[in-house]
Design a protein around this nucleic acid. Structure first.
Lengths: 258, 258
DNA sequence: GTCTATACCCCGATAGAC
DNA sequence: GTCTATCGGGGTATAGAC
């Protein structure tokens, strides 16, 4: 009885996935602004009107792709953090879903710094592997498209990983709280109340800035601004990420709060 | 004799400007990917084929817009630097072409830091005032569009301003050269040879990273990533810019090289 | 340099048969 | 859920008269 319904639902899920996969391909070729239901349908051997049974409109398909992309980069970040968190606990085989996460052996000089770096590199690796999906979520907004509420949860996953990382470091007394500029104090306190009430406002403010700057590095590399300028992007990125870690209070060695 | 030719050329220049102005309007409404010659022509009361006398193809129009945008933000940066450079020298009336450049009174605690901040704020101000042109040059690449060589000169203007600023500080002994990570040294030396052979490689490498991070802050603000997260963007930006200045060796007070 | 006309493509969305 | 057919738009680019 439930078999039929189950089979139908399974088919629906498969077709939905096929549509999204094809749409992702087209994203690469034509960009989000020109993503077209008709072209997707054509490529799948369907007729355009059939797609409307799966996605009520072009924007709904776009929303699904955006949510998927945020989830993918969020998951990459989460598993990079998890991999760094338990370096010797379980025999984590490298063939996990995260695939290709940079080795983040807990360096004895600073486990939190190592994890910070691992998460940042995982985000960059994901971006390099999925440039068009990255552009979809971190590039210029798609004109005319208004992101529905559904996207805000997935969009915050990467940020949540960094907050969790700093929280852990803070509790273990591994964070050197940076000084808080007086001018910045009200906003820092407001952000801290919103994002992580248990962390010092100075850390939260520094983290938000570092978050934007981290993606600035990735975007410049991905969007071609580094062409003919930076060759060894990997090295420059890792160096800058280390500096960003410093800016939020993560020093290499355990440093008491001040 | 040259009057007729002059008049014709003037007319041509005016029409070309009108086309670009209208195209910029459409950039805001539809985005670069959907910029269409026909729509521009329609709005100008021309017929589409007439535009081909001015721009041989859609991509050529796009290139013109990109070059204009790079030039505009470059000029904003240059005049912000110039304004900060001679604070008491001439009676610079504020009505200059730069218009709206944030006050950059040479603070006694560090003229180079003040100028650095002024340039960064000028770039951000320009971006906030021209969000779609900013997205055109610093957002996701336009799919299918390949930037011709003509764009690389204008694209480098902002970077050149920062390099000039640091050069000036360095010569005046106002730069605390940051330490150079060994892993980064080869790339830093390569970049320095390319961009500013007279500056220490460590400074050049830090500058390139800071450059990308600066635009990361602006892009996150402009592209909506700060929505529901950061309220006082101005304050956060200025704070982060100050930290970036530190990262390249610009401290508030004159500090000897080390 | 501007016009009309045209060739040849594209799109989102819906109606109604099956 | 998929199909055909259709409405009502959109686009790049060129040819050739004026």
């Amino acid at each position: 009885m439930s078999t039929i319904r189950g089979a139908r639902e399974r088919a629906r899920i498969e077709v939905t996935a096929a549509i999204k996969d094809e749409a992702r391909k087209q994203l690469a070729a034509e960009g989000a602004a020109k993503l077209s239901l008709r072209a997707v349908a054509r490529e799948l051997g369907m007729v355009s009107s059939a797609l409307y049974r799966y996605f009520p409109s072009r924007d709904d398909l776009l929303t699904a792709l955006i949510v998927d992309a945020y989830d993918a980069v969020g998951e990459a970040a989460e598993s990079a953090r998890a991999a760094g968190a338990a370096p010797a606990a379980e025999a984590q085989d490298g063939a996990g879903s995260g695939g290709g996460v940079r080795r983040a052996a807990a360096s004895p000089s600073g486990p939190y710094l190592a994890r910070w770096t691992a998460v940042a590199c995982a985000v960059r690796d994901w971006a390099l592997a999925h440039p068009h999906e990255y552009a979809l979520i971190y590039g210029s907004p798609v004109p005319g498209y208004i992101a529905p509420q559904d996207t805000v949860g997935p969009a915050s996953r990467v940020g949540v990983v960094f907050i969790g990382l700093l929280r852990e470091a803070y509790r273990a007394d591994g964070l050197a709280v940076p000084p808080l500029d007086g001018e910045l104090r009200p906003e820092a306190e407001r952000m801290a109340a919103d994002l992580a009430a248990d962390l010092p406002p100075a850390v939260v403010a520094a983290l938000v800035a570092a978050w934007a700057q981290l993606f600035g590095l990735i975007s410049f590399e991905l969007f071609g601004q580094f062409n003919r300028v930076v060759e060894a992007r990997d090295v420059l990125f890792r160096h800058a990420v280390g500096e960003l870690a410093r800016s939020v209070g993560l020093t290499g060695s355990r440093a008491g709060t001040r």
